[in-house]
Computed example of a mutant assay.
Amino acid sequence: MAQSTIEHRETSGTFSLDGGTWDVDNNVWVVGDDQGCVVIDPAHDLDVVADAVGSRTVEKILLTHAHDDHAGLAVEAAGRFGAPIFLHPDEQPLWKLTHSEPAPSFHRLTDGFQLPVGDATLTVIHTPGHSPGSVCFYSQDLEWNGASPVVFSGDTLFQGGPGATGRSYSDFPTIIASITDRLLVLPKDTVVLTGHGDSTTIGAEAPHRQEWIDRGE
């Protein structure tokens, strides 16, 4: 079996919530071997996503959360790639802000759930705070630029601190608890592959936890 690898693409569009709209650049991650793959947060431009997928079969569409810049094209992606959507059930209130109906072929992500991807495994880590059902995907098997393990953090943890919590369905103490209890306990060399911006590592972010708390949301 061929080794599973990570493909990255950046797409551009908008994020809308609470009456505001902002321009954003999103990271899209495609994980798999030369036969099949999963797509994490297919944002803004499905042609760009399809370029990363190539001729492979898309087995799953994994959503870190349901904000429209991450999940707005999920139903269209499911139809285009013939793949089921996976989302944490606590994201339903946010999903309904963007989609009038439940996701077709909807599968519930739960904490600790393991998703095989080629010869690798992604483990779901529930990290509420940015949104109630935000999740990260951790893998000891995958490498990014020669470094391993990796965690796909969505909008929970970025280079420089936690994701935003100043909008509906978010909470600053909760995201700090999630990062502290669920992410900062990972190996320090874990590469954090984020939903926006540059990657970082758990070891690079951990020393700044008190600064985040002092800074607040």
Rank of each mutant, 00 (worst) to 15 (best):
T121S: 04
G146R: 08
I176G: 05
T180E: 15
A71Y: 03
A74H: 12
S134G: 10
A52R: 06
S16D: 10
L87A: 11
G154K: 06
W144F: 15
I179Q: 02
S168C: 10
V24K: 01
G195K: 01
H126V: 11
R215F: 05
L183G: 12
S134Y: 04
L184Q: 03
V124P: 10
A83S: 04
G203K: 03
G79E: 11
Q35L: 14
A120I: 09
I40Q: 02
R9H: 11
F172C: 07
T110P: 02
T174D: 04
H196A: 12
D18G: 15
P93L: 05
S100L: 12
T21C: 09
D141Q: 08
C136P: 00
S55G: 13
S168P: 06
G72D: 09
N145Q: 14
Q114K: 14
E143H: 14
H208S: 12
A120R: 08
M1A: 13
L109N: 12
A103C: 10
T64M: 11
R209P: 00
S168R: 15
T11F: 05
G197W: 09
I6R: 04
Y138P: 07
T123D: 05
V38P: 00
F158E: 01
E217C: 11
P187G: 06
E76N: 07
S178H: 02
W22M: 13
A43T: 00
T21N: 07
K188S: 12
P162K: 07
A177F: 01
D189M: 05
I179D: 04
I176P: 03
F158C: 02
A50I: 00
G32I: 00
T11K: 09
